[in-house]
Simulated assay, not measured.
Amino acid sequence: MGRRSAGRGWRAAAWVLTPVGLVLLVGSVAHGIGRYDTVTVGGDSMRPGFPPGAHVLVRRLGSDGVHRGDVVLIDPPERYMTEPVLRRVIGIGGDHVTGDGSRVAVNGKTLDEPYLADRQGDPHADPYDVRVPAGRLFVLGDHRANSNDSRYHLDAYEGGFAASGVRGRVVPGATVPAGPTVFAILGLALAAAGLGGYAAGRRAARKEQVAPPLTPRWPGTQNA
């Protein structure tokens, strides 16, 4: 009777743990696929933080989720290139952006830019003074001396790239978000525990089938 109860208990646990684990695992994977992309850096314009060949995690979002200082994957003007590029957002719609090659100021405040490849910027670049149009983003590369960015498109929309062209924002550190990872690991563990419980229940059931029947002993008699 004890073996039978144990076998049923293992199988019951398996019926609960396995579906719950699979739901968590599949849901976490679907969440990651639906909200994140992995991008390989192809150019030199975002050194040193994003060198060529680096893999970065990009979270998909709309233009309303973009802030100054974000590194975004964005569609450039068609005459620029056809593939989306990584650029740092310097100004958003309505901002007053000025630059002289070595310094950049937004709304009168000079930016501290520790991420630059060269803290001197690009001393050979022409100065600019723009008001970013609504629905546009003024973007620059971190390697200013080797970046085709808003500075070279000032004749159209004050150099602003269309905010609607933002594909997503780079996740700092290029790590997989903690939440989905935790749920995926938990789901995998539960599914494994459920399958293990099912296997244990099957083994217990087989032992029940092969166990020899007990011979009853009556008072005052002896078994031969």
Rank of each mutant, 00 (worst) to 15 (best):
R4F: 11
R4H: 03
S5E: 04
S5Y: 14
A6Y: 11
A6E: 12
A6G: 08
G7Q: 09
R8Q: 13
G9P: 10
A13I: 00
V16N: 04
L17H: 02
T18W: 07
V20T: 00
G21V: 06
V23G: 02
L24V: 00
L24F: 13
L24S: 03
V29W: 06
G32Y: 10
I33S: 04
R35W: 02
T40M: 05
T40A: 10
V41L: 06
G42R: 11
S45K: 12
S45E: 03
S45A: 15
R47P: 05
P48I: 01
F50N: 02
P51I: 06
G53T: 00
G62F: 11
S63K: 03
D64V: 12
D64K: 01
G65V: 01
G65E: 08
V66R: 11
R68G: 04
G69H: 12
V71C: 02
V72E: 04
D75W: 07
E78L: 12
E78M: 08
E78C: 02
Y80K: 11
L86E: 02
L86P: 00
R87V: 05
V89Y: 14
I90K: 10
I92D: 05
G93M: 13
H96W: 01
H96Y: 05
V97C: 02
V97M: 03
T98C: 00
D100M: 00
R103I: 06
R103G: 04
R103S: 14
A105Q: 14
V106L: 08
K109M: 11
K109C: 07
L116M: 09
A117E: 09
A117C: 07
D122W: 11
D122I: 05
D129H: 01
D129K: 04
R131W: 06
P133Q: 05
P133D: 06
A134T: 08
G135Y: 12
R136Q: 06
V139F: 08
D142C: 09
H143E: 14
H143A: 14
N146E: 12
N148F: 12
D149M: 13
L154Q: 08
D155Q: 15
Y157D: 15
E158A: 03
G159T: 14
G160H: 04
F161D: 15
F161G: 13
A163F: 08
G165I: 14
G165W: 13
G168I: 00
G168Y: 03
V176D: 01
P180M: 04
V182H: 09
V182Q: 02
A184P: 00
I185N: 05
I185A: 15
I185C: 07
L188Y: 10
A189T: 08
A193F: 00
G194K: 12
G197L: 10
G197V: 07
G197Q: 07
A199S: 07
A200G: 14
A200F: 14
G201V: 07
G201Y: 02
R202N: 10
R206P: 05
K207R: 11
Q209I: 05
P213S: 10
L214E: 14
R217N: 07
W218G: 01
Q222F: 11
Q222C: 01
N223W: 03
